[in-house]
């Protein structure tokens, strides 16, 4: 019997410093339990994390890189969304 290709999982780890889970890479595993164990062995051999998420790669919907212009243009023209857009006199101090 030919064994089917083992499914691909994306691995996310929350590091010690309390930040959000961050993508660290991917791995193959037949199911979620083994994916978690493999993620522990492959991505946290030096205490890199306190929590792991594994997500089937097939469950991820990604934006299209060829449409990134259209996708992100709306934010680029709105410089008034940044604090430096506004003038506050120096006498007022840090704000």
């Amino acid at each position: 019997m030919a064994t089917p290709n083992t499914p691909l999982w994306e691995v996310f780890i929350r590091s010690r410093n309390g930040l959000a889970h961050k993508h660290v890479g991917s791995l193959h595993a037949p199911d979620a339990t083994l994916a978690l164990q493999a993620a522990r062995d492959v991505y946290t051999r030096r205490g890199e994390g306190l929590s792991i998420w594994v997500v089937p790669s097939s469950a991820i919907t990604a934006s299209d890189p060829s449409e990134k212009g259209m996708m992100f243009e709306p934010a680029e023209s709105k410089i008034y969304r940044h604090p430096t857009f506004y003038d506050v006199p120096e006498e007022v101090g840090h704000m």
Binding site: N5, T6, L8, G25, S26, L27, H28, D41, V42, R45
Partner: peptide
């Protein structure tokens, strides 16, 4: 032992990187 485990891990990171180009690890 830790070093050899690392080599295995390195192989796996690299297969994963190669796979993003459309060839399966198998």
């Amino acid at each position: 032992l830790a070093k050899v485990q690392d080599e295995c891990g390195h192989g796996l990171y690299l297969y994963a990187a190669a796979e993003t180009l459309g060839s399966s690890r198998e």
